[in-house]
Amino acid sequence: MALKLTKEVFIVGAKRTPFGGFGGALKDFTANDLQTHANVAAMAQAGVDPSLVDSVCVGNVMQSSSDAAYIARHSALRAGIDKATPV
């Protein structure tokens, strides 16, 4: 049985967090800090107002900081996306 989408999905902007060396220039940034920066940059690249975002999906390889457990939710909120937006 094939899954049928009931509405279209559009990816209008995407950014990724940088790679760094262990203990390097990024050591003082949490995973949430970096993801928030990527969220803001993706919305800016696409010219999308945070109020227009209706879903957030974040891929995270490992929880590298204590605030990474809910990284999609926290970074979305920090980027100005509405708290009612599903993640």
Rank of each mutant, 00 (worst) to 15 (best):
M1L: 09
A2I: 04
A2E: 07
L3C: 07
K4E: 14
T6G: 12
K7A: 15
K7F: 08
E8R: 09
V9W: 09
V9T: 08
F10T: 12
G13S: 11
A14K: 06
R16P: 10
T17N: 04
T17Q: 13
G20H: 05
G20E: 01
G21Y: 06
G21Q: 09
F22T: 07
F22Q: 06
G23V: 01
G23W: 05
A25Q: 08
K27N: 13
D28K: 08
F29Y: 14
F29A: 12
F29V: 12
T30N: 12
T30R: 11
A31L: 14
A31G: 15
A31R: 01
A31E: 04
N32Y: 02
D33H: 10
D33S: 04
D33K: 01
L34S: 00
Q35F: 09
H37K: 12
A38W: 01
N39K: 04
N39E: 07
N39T: 00
V40W: 03
V40E: 05
V40C: 07
Q45A: 07
Q45I: 05
A46H: 05
G47Y: 11
P50W: 03
S51D: 12
S51L: 13
L52W: 08
V53N: 06
V53D: 06
D54W: 13
S55P: 02
C57V: 14
C57W: 13
G59F: 15
G59N: 03
G59P: 01
M62V: 08
Q63I: 07
S64C: 11
S65I: 08
S65T: 06
S66R: 07
S66P: 09
D67Q: 00
Y70V: 02
Y70D: 00
Y70Q: 04
I71W: 06
I71T: 01
A72V: 03
A72K: 00
A72Y: 04
R73S: 03
R73N: 10
H74Q: 07
H74L: 00
H74W: 10
S75H: 01
A76G: 07
L77C: 02
L77R: 00
R78E: 03
G80I: 03
I81W: 03
D82V: 06
A84G: 14
A84Y: 09
T85N: 05
T85V: 15
T85K: 06
P86C: 08
P86E: 14
P86F: 12
